[in-house]
Amino acid sequence: MVKEIVDAMAMQRALTRITYEIIEKNKGINNLVIVGIKTRGVYIGNHIAERLQQLESAEIPVGQLDISSYRDDLNEITDKQPLDVNVDGKRVILVDDVLYTGRTIRAALDALMDNGRPAVVNLAVLVDRGHRELPIRADFVGKNIPTSAMERIQVNVEEIDGRDSVEIE
């Protein structure tokens, strides 16, 4: 049974709050680059970038990170360029939709480091569902949603799924 636990409005508020926190933590937007983890992380990253633009009237670059070749629990090998934006010396905000075991983020960090030398990397996630298997934590969290391992969390974004919401099954 699929249940919506975060609706579109609440999702918007969460992203707004994360954006303010990013400004606070980074003391502004100098040198910021947002890197979204494919696929939904990119859209969420875009939303954060939009907000930053509204507030500071400056365009923050948003890049996509494709980690399919870095996952240690998947068997995909590709030779796509994982990162499409320059992160050297930048303060990177890595963005993903759900933080779970931490393996995806670990892979993302590997991908990031292999493709640049960021000055700082912060992690922003829309949902933290607990159950970490690696020592990874998010700097900015939209919603903390404790779950059981049996449950499935799905973040929907307008651009792909036709609506903004977080569902649990």
């Binding site: 926190e21 606070e24 502004g28 507030l55």
Partner: peptide, 24 residues
């Protein structure tokens, strides 16, 4: 501090937030 909200009838500031602290 930076501006977070504006009244559209006269542009007057309706909200502020601190750059460095969680204060608004």
């Amino acid at each position: 501090v930076f501006v977070t909200h504006v009244d559209l009838t006269d542009g007057s500031i309706q909200g502020l937030r601190h750059r460095n602290y969680p204060a608004f």
